[in-house]
Amino acid sequence: MTENDKAQIRDLGDEVYLIDTYMADYDGITAAYLIRSERPCLIETGTARSAPAVIKALSYLGVGPHDLATIVVTHIHLDHAGGVGDIAAAFPDAEIVVHERGAKHLADPKRLLASAGQIYGPVLEEVFGLLRPTDAARIQAVDEVDVIDLGGGRTLTSYHSPGHAKHHLGLLDSATGDLYVGDAAGLYMPETGTMKPATPPPDFDLDSSLRSLGLFRQLAPARLLFSHFGPARHTSDALERAAEELRLWVDAVRLSRATTPELEHAVAAVRDRTRARYADLAAMPDVDAKFEALNSTETNVAGILRWLDKTKG
C-alpha cells in the first residue's frame, strides 16, 4: 500500500477507522467507516467506482475476504450504497443491513438506477458507476429500531431517521457513543466547520428531518460521524446548527416561491441569504467547489420546492 493509499485511512480510536472513498476522485468528500470489532462492520460503501479503493483499505486494515461480518448503509443513495454489490461480492460472508424501504432496491437496483439516470443523465456511470445486485438472502431489512451485533458485547443500534430519505438510518455505537448520521444532519466541512443541508428530491421532508434531528439529540452521542465528511465532537451544537440551516433554506425558498415558482429565482435567494454565513467556505474555493459538486444548491432547492408543492407551501 502506498503512502497515498495510507492517507485514505484515519484511525479515530476504539477500533474505528474512517476510509476516504475518493468519490469522483475527490478526497475528503465521502467517507466509509470500519468498526474493527470482533465482528467487523463496514458502514457505507461509497459509490461502485469507489469499491476497489474501499476493498483495498479493508485489506490493509486486516479484514480478509471472510472476516467482514456486516455491511450497513445509512440509505441507498448511490454515494452511500452504490458499492454494496461489489463489496458484498468481495466479502461473501457479510450480511447487508439496510432499512426495509431500501432492501428491494439493493436486490434489484434497476428502478433505483433508472431514477438516478433521470437526475444525472450520461454522467451517472462516470461519477457513480453501476450498483450491482445483491443476493436478497444476504440482506437484513430493519425498520424503526434494531440492533446489530458487533461481537464482544458491542452493538450498533439503528434508528429510522427519515427526512433526507424515507429509507434513512442513524447508527449508534454502544462502545463509543459515536452516531453515524449519514445525510440526516446534512454536510459537515471540517476545513471550515461549515454545515449545509442535504435536501434533494424526491424524499425531502422538513418535519421528518427536524424530528430525526430531535431523536439524534435525545441519543446524546459523544461524536457525530458524517458521511460527508468526518467526525464532529460538539454534537449538540452541530445538531442544532443542522436544524437551523434547514429552517433557513426552507424559509428562503418559501419566500422566493411566493413571488415566482422558478428554480433559478429560489437558488439565487438561498445564495443571497447564506452568502455571509458561508463566507469562510467561499474563501476556500477548492473545498467549496467539491462539496457543491456533491451537493449542489440547485438540487437541494429543487427538493425543497418539491416538498413545498406537496405540502401546499
Rank of each mutant, 00 (worst) to 15 (best):
M1P: 00
T2S: 07
I9P: 15
R10Y: 09
R10M: 11
L12D: 11
D14A: 14
D14W: 10
E15Y: 02
V16G: 04
I19Q: 13
I19S: 06
M23G: 03
Y26L: 08
Y26T: 03
G28M: 01
G28H: 10
A32M: 09
A32K: 04
R36S: 06
P40A: 02
C41Q: 06
L42T: 07
E44Q: 15
T45R: 06
R49L: 11
S50A: 15
P52C: 00
I55W: 03
A57P: 12
L61C: 03
L61T: 12
G62I: 13
P65I: 04
H66N: 12
L68Y: 02
V73Y: 01
H75P: 02
H75S: 13
L78F: 10
G83E: 14
V84N: 10
D86R: 15
A89S: 14
A90M: 05
P92M: 01
E95Y: 06
H99F: 10
H99V: 10
E100R: 14
A103R: 12
P109H: 08
R111K: 13
A114W: 10
I119Y: 07
Y120H: 14
V123R: 00
E126M: 07
V127P: 06
T134C: 07
I139F: 08
E144Y: 12
D146R: 08
D149H: 07
L150G: 15
G152Y: 09
T157Y: 13
G163Q: 01
H164C: 07
H164R: 13
K166A: 08
H167R: 04
H167P: 07
L169N: 12
D173L: 03
A175E: 14
G177Y: 10
D178E: 06
L179H: 09
G182W: 01
L187I: 01
P190H: 00
E191M: 02
M195Y: 00
M195T: 03
K196F: 04
K196L: 15
P197K: 03
P200E: 00
D207Y: 02
S209Y: 10
S212P: 12
G214W: 05
R217T: 11
L219D: 03
L224A: 07
F226R: 01
T235V: 15
T235M: 15
S236M: 05
A242W: 08
A243F: 08
E245K: 05
L246C: 00
L246E: 01
W249S: 07
D251C: 03
D251S: 08
V253Y: 01
V253P: 11
L255A: 06
L255N: 00
R257Q: 11
T259G: 13
A266D: 12
V267S: 10
A268W: 05
A268E: 12
R271K: 15
R273S: 14
R275F: 13
R275P: 01
A276K: 14
R277K: 13
Y278C: 06
D280C: 10
A282H: 04
M284E: 00
V287E: 11
D288A: 07
A289V: 00
S296K: 00
T299E: 03
T299K: 02
N300V: 03
V301M: 06
A302W: 00
G303S: 02
I304T: 10
R306A: 11
R306H: 02
D309P: 07
D309G: 06
K310P: 00
G313F: 04
